[in-house]
């Protein structure tokens, strides 16, 4: 079984987000980048498939050279090899086209992407990739078991969960639940050493279009000062919520 794990390279969750002075771009200055948290769950699930069912795991990223440490981290966690498509990830559709082109060449049995990237929160690439490849798609996937060419999956739905079956090849948009937080792999010294020699192929981008244009960024409006309410005066809180905030 060949598994492809899509890895988005995103600011660490503790990052303060700033934009360049003309507000045209995200300011990467001083920002630490990490594997997108949603992709970490998918990567660990893929490594379990490798350890228990003999899968091979390839990590892929669409990005410039600056994303390589993130791919190396995926290798250190346990991916067998990695592919970087040398292009700026301009929008979800562009990224999906790039990954689809690689997937068409290599016939993966399973493609694991994340439900969304925590940078642009697109929630697009996984589904678009499935549609471009004409493969079944399960989004917000919280459970995955593979037996032969059949998969049993669970996905989150509004107010519950749904169980599904599908045949491989297929594409999922994964999240926590594929594995739990405590199962996430952290690279160890041996992993980090071996990652240095694992193959990381850099491929040129194929043709692809973007369908959206990005305008100027802004930060959320600052919060007005907090109104403190005495702990033994909850009648006052209820009054404020009713009369001032008008939420009850």
């Amino acid at each position: 079984m060949k598994v492809l794990v899509c890895i988005s390279h995103v600011p660490d969750t503790t990052s303060k987000i700033n934009f360049t002075s003309d507000n045209k771009e995200f300011d990467k200055n001083g920002v630490q980048f990490v594997i997108n948290p949603y992709d970490e769950f998918g990567l660990t699930r893929a490594i379990w498939l490798k350890e228990k069912q003999g899968a091979t795991v390839t990590a892929i990223n669409v990005g410039k050279a600056e994303t390589e440490p993130t791919l190396r981290k995926a290798l250190a966690i346990g991916a067998d090899d990695a592919i970087r498509i040398d292009a700026d990830a301009t929008d979800g559709f562009y990224v999906a086209q790039q990954i689809a082109a690689v997937a068409k060449e290599n016939n993966y049995d399973l493609i694991i992407a994340g439900r969304e990237s925590i940078d642009y929160n697109g929630g697009q690439v996984a589904g678009m990739l499935a549609a471009l490849l004409n493969q079944p798609f399960v989004n917000a996937c919280v459970g995955l078991e593979v037996e032969g060419s059949n998969a049993t999956l669970m996905r989150e739905i509004d107010g519950g969960k749904e169980t599904l079956t599908a045949s491989l090849p297929l594409v999922i948009g994964g999240q926590k639940g594929l594995v739990e937080e405590k199962d996430l792999r952290i690279p160890n010294m041996r992993g980090i050493m071996s990652a240095r020699t694992k193959p990381l192929a850099v491929k040129p981008a194929t043709d692809g279009a973007s369908r959206v244009q990005v305008g100027s960024f802004e930060k959320p409006a600052p919060k007005s000062a907090v109104t403190m309410v005495e702990a033994d005066n909850m009648d006052e809180l209820v009054k404020l919520l009713h009369e001032e905030a008008k939420v009850i």
Binding site: I17, R211, V212, Q213, G215, F217, P220
Partner: peptide
């Protein structure tokens, strides 16, 4: 974007 740490206008001419 950035999990509510920012906002941006997108447009599409598709």
């Amino acid at each position: 974007v950035f999990s509510s740490k920012g906002f941006v206008n997108y447009s599409t001419e598709a």
